[in-house]
Simulated assay, not measured.
Amino acid sequence: MWVEKNGPAWRIRDLINGKKVTLESGYPTKTAAKARMTALRADKMRGEFIDPRDGKLLLGEWIDIWWPTYEAGLKPTAQISEGRRARRHVQQVLGHLALDEVDNLAIQRWIAYLLAGDPAAGRRKLAPKSVRNCHGVLHTILGAAVVARKMRSNPCSETRLPQAPHHEMRFLSEPEIGRLLGAVPEHWRPLVVLLVSTGLRWGEAIALRPQDIDVLGGKLTVVRAMHELSSTGAIVFTEPKTERSRRTVTFPQRPVGEVLAGPVATRARGELVFRSPRGSEVRTRNFRRGWIKWVSVAGLDGLRIHDLRHTHAALLISAGVPLTAIQRRLGHSSIAVTSDLYGHLLPVVDEGIMAAVTAALSAVELELVEAEVADEVGIAA
């Protein structure tokens, strides 16, 4: 590595694969060029050297190079959703920038652009949650560039993201659960009973087969999830969401075992337990159309299917079940996820604990205890 005159300025050169190449140029003085060369040599010795020429690689070109390998490891549904974000919202908007031009300012402008939309380019405004998802894809793309030593650091790490709106969880009371089940048609009632009594995710529940359910033993095994691809409408089955999502979940014989017995008994071992009235797979969109009507009849407008999972967790917490047990039952990846979602409900449990402690202590003759303590202090004195 050396410096040499290049017209009115100075540049840094190196010998790579037997060829002389320019690493950087445009330094006004030889001293400035040498100072930069010293820094580059130090980076080489520490194993942190990044060829400045790699920074000239366009972001769009890097995505074309790296994305196919990354995409191959994604689940089918993620391939569609993340692939769409990578192509439409990252590559089409930022792809013309070189990697060394994708800095924090460029990313903040990109976020503002996605939030505002661009009618002239056929781009509608994106919701804050959608922008955060797009930013997550960009973070992954640039993180891979850092690992490949195309960039020194990931500028996404210090981005200010729009605040996603907070959706309040809804927890049904026992009377509300009864009203809901009364409004749901008989054909769908076993599925709704299962959701509220086990806390299964929607895709986990509709993917169940008779071989996954032990009705007499009161347990089921989650080994897969069913999804409907938005692009083609095809039904696909994937591994559970996380490693901990592969689990065994127990359920009471009454009423869960009783309502499941019928659907399980009428299906072959490898068939789907839950099907539409016409016998086809459960299509989420079709089910939602009915769901909106049923919750309205039950006086529970706005209730989401996923709120049944939240309701199940709330029932467990109110019964004093530890968060670790709830984490395993719901298949969360870590206790932190469970705590973040439901930790705010714990004060309700604490109130019950304090009531129990108060009741226990009230039975103790505190005056007698105080007298005994006084006697011991007198003896010690």
Rank of each mutant, 00 (worst) to 15 (best):
Phe274Ile: 00
Leu323Met: 15
Leu345Ala: 12
Leu300Ser: 11
Ser280Asn: 15
Arg269His: 10
Arg309Thr: 10
Gly270Asp: 15
Ser318Cys: 03
Leu316Ile: 07
Ile317Arg: 10
Gly290Glu: 02
Val273Leu: 00
Ala319Asp: 15
His332Ser: 03
Ile353Thr: 15
Gly279Leu: 07
His332Arg: 03
Arg288Pro: 00
Leu345Pro: 10
Ile326Ser: 09
Ser276Tyr: 03
Val282Lys: 01
Phe274Trp: 03
Glu281Val: 15
His344Ile: 05
Gly290Ile: 08
His306Glu: 08
Glu281Asn: 13
Leu330His: 07
Leu345Arg: 05
Leu315Thr: 06
His332Lys: 03
Ser334His: 02
Asp307Leu: 09
Ile326Trp: 07
Arg269Ser: 14
Gly320Glu: 07
His310Val: 09
Asp301Pro: 07
Arg304Asp: 05
Leu300Thr: 09
Val297Met: 06
Gly343Cys: 09
Val282Asn: 02
Gln327Tyr: 02
Asp350Lys: 10
Ile326Met: 07
Trp291Asp: 06
Ile317Asp: 08
Leu272Pro: 01
Ile305Ser: 03
Ile335Met: 02
Arg329Cys: 06
Ser339Val: 08
Arg278Thr: 11
Thr324Asp: 09
Ile335Phe: 01
Thr284Phe: 12
Pro347Arg: 11
Leu345Asp: 10
Ala325Arg: 11
Thr311Val: 08
Glu281Met: 08
Ser296Phe: 00
Phe287Lys: 05
His310Gln: 12
Val321Thr: 13
Leu315Pro: 00
Arg285Ile: 04
Arg289Trp: 08
Leu345Trp: 03
Val282Ser: 03
Leu272Trp: 14
Ala325Leu: 13
His344Asp: 05
Glu281Trp: 06
Leu323Glu: 12
His344Arg: 03
Ser296Trp: 00
Ala319Gly: 11
Ser280Val: 03
Ala336Gly: 05
Leu316His: 08
His306Cys: 10
Arg278Val: 06
Ala298Ile: 04
Ser339Thr: 15
Ser339Asn: 11
Arg283Val: 12
Ala336Ser: 14
Val297Tyr: 00
Asp340Thr: 11
Arg278Gln: 12
His332Val: 02
Ala314His: 04
Thr338Phe: 11
Leu345Val: 05
Leu330Asn: 07
Val337Gln: 03
Thr311Glu: 11
Gly290Asn: 04
Pro347His: 04
Ser318Tyr: 04
